[in-house]
């Protein structure tokens, strides 16, 4: 499933970034990388971006299109 489909307040682990390689490297530099735990906190109004906690201490607004290209695994979060 993708980050976009994740239920709010449910934690999952990023398994793949399905974007072009430069964009993927840039996301990893920001901390949005494979293996990192993510939680969708809320969605912005008017089909706006998602507020996502990435790792333990950082939060990002991520637009829905991009969130739809980030594969996550809710089962992996427990590890």
């Amino acid at each position: 499933m993708t980050l976009r489909e994740l239920t709010h307040h449910q934690t999952a682990r990023i398994v793949a970034l399905r974007v072009d390689p430069v964009e993927a490297r840039w996301l990893r530099a920001l901390g949005v990388a494979e293996g990192v735990a993510v939680t969708v906190l809320r969605a912005g109004p008017f089909r706006g971006p998602l507020q996502v906690r990435v790792g333990e201490r950082t939060a990002f607004a991520i637009d829905r299109a991009l969130a739809g290209s980030i594969d996550v695994d809710p089962a992996g979060a427990a590890e």
């Binding site: 912005g44 008017f46 706006g48 971006p49 607004a61 637009d63």
Partner: peptide, 16 residues
Amino acid sequence: GAFLIDGALRPFGLGG
């Protein structure tokens, strides 16, 4: 603020 308004401006090619 950008998070709140971004959705409304997206259709016009602009961000929050």
